[in-house]
Amino acid sequence: MILETEQLAKRYRRRWALRDCTLAVPEGAIVGLVGPNGAGKTTLLQLIVGLLSPTAGAVRVLGGTPDAAMRSGRVGFVAQDAPTYAGLTVADHLSLGAGLNSHRWDAAAAKERVERLGLPPRQKAGRLSGGQRAQLALTLALSKSPDLLVLDEPVASLDPLARRAFLDETVAAATATGTAVVLSTHLVADLAHTCTHVVVVAGGRIRLAAAIAGLCATPAELERVVLDELGRATDEGSSQ
């Protein structure tokens, strides 16, 4: 397994953001993490990349701790809103990626990707569109040739066309290299199109984790399954 969590939990002061989260992601899987706002998706992803430390339970990434996995350069991460340095150019960002991941950086692939996507090398990141900025952040993550790619709502602020382009790019790159992907979204429609596995999170708990192929046959069916699960979570939450 490329990623495993066991009874993982995170509490902020008195509020549990995530509880009893046990999950296993096989190599090459593309896992869609779906749930409403505040469900615990971002918390889970930040635990995976070591930006948060768990209150209870354990997380193993590539067989070790999240910190070790991040230092190895084998994990790519694009945070929510795809943060980039507004004052640095696209070329500067590539230099940043090369400098900070020198032993894994694929400069040729990064250059080719930037050219193919039409990102002007001298353009400052602060002047890129939301979609371009997300693509730049994805380029930084992918050019490390990661074994695991973690994306936190990377398409949340993008228009439908840019969203589709971003997800297509991600799937194509991950499939070509065998990279496992864990991405969060609150759009169920993205899942069927993109992912091999689905994880439904609501109220800080995992409600469903399964391979999409064994769960349903059509995107509409997947949407019904996910919405049913989220509906049950809402009912349980309101009855407690």
Binding site: V49, G50, L51, M70, R71, S72, G73, V75, G76, F77, A79, Q80, D81, P83, T84, Y85, L96, G97, L100, N101, S102, H103, R104, A137, L140, A141, K144
Partner: peptide, 10 residues
């Protein structure tokens, strides 16, 4: 939010 970009590097 760029700390989340740079801390995700090696």
């Amino acid at each position: 939010g760029t700390h989340r970009l740079v801390w995700a590097q090696s």
